[in-house]
Amino acid sequence: MISFSKLVLVFGLLFALALHANAALMPSMCSVQEEEAAPCVCCKKGCWFGIAEMTTNYFGHMPGERSDAESRFALAMMSQCFKLECSEVCSSL
């Protein structure tokens, strides 16, 4: 079994590489009007669903179905996405 710290490191590297390659990690979750009205909420929704999809594809099931470490990992990745992707549109980050 891979340790939580190794898992975070591997996904962190994948996340950084994807950002460097300008890959779209976050799906568009809002309409244009919603994006204009609440850009921070839309960015966080994109992170939430994008990371959930990425980790589900990696694990082959929803994070947390086998262990709590999977769900903690997915939440940590979402938190990093919020900080990296949403800091410009969310003043509280």
Rank of each mutant, 00 (worst) to 15 (best):
A52K: 03
G12E: 05
M1L: 12
A24G: 10
A18K: 09
C30H: 05
C42P: 10
P27N: 01
G50Q: 06
P27E: 07
G50P: 03
L17R: 11
S31H: 08
A16M: 13
P27F: 02
A18D: 02
G46W: 07
G12Y: 05
H20C: 13
W48Y: 07
L17G: 13
F4A: 08
E53V: 00
M26L: 15
V32W: 05
S31V: 12
E36G: 07
A21T: 08
C42W: 06
C47F: 03
I51T: 14
K6A: 14
C40Y: 00
C43F: 00
V41P: 02
C30F: 04
C43A: 01
G12V: 12
V32Q: 15
T55C: 10
C30W: 07
M26R: 12
M29T: 14
A23N: 02
G50R: 01
V41Q: 08
E36T: 03
L25A: 07
L19C: 10
A16D: 08
F49H: 12
K6S: 05
T55N: 06
K6H: 11
E53Q: 11
F15L: 00
K44I: 03
A38S: 10
A21E: 11
H20M: 14
A52G: 06
L13F: 07
W48T: 13
L14C: 08
A16K: 10
V41T: 09
P39C: 06
W48V: 09
T56D: 09
G46I: 10
V41Y: 06
T55G: 10
H20E: 12
L14P: 01
N22L: 08
L17D: 03
K6I: 10
K45R: 08
L17N: 06
V32A: 14
G50K: 07
K6T: 14
L13P: 01
K44Q: 14
A38F: 01
V41L: 00
H20T: 13
M26K: 11
M54Y: 11
C42K: 09
S3M: 03
E35F: 04
S5E: 15
A37S: 11
P39L: 05
M54T: 14
F11P: 05
S5R: 12
A24Q: 15
L9Y: 07
A52M: 02
A21W: 09
Q33H: 09
C42F: 01
S31P: 03
K44L: 11
L14Q: 02
L13H: 06
T55K: 06
S28M: 08
F49P: 03
L13N: 01
A21M: 05
A38C: 04
S3D: 15
F15N: 05
A23L: 15
S31W: 00
H20I: 10
S5Q: 14
A37I: 08
C47D: 03
M26C: 13
C40G: 04
M29H: 09
L13C: 05
M1T: 12
F4I: 07
F4H: 07
S28R: 11
P27Y: 02
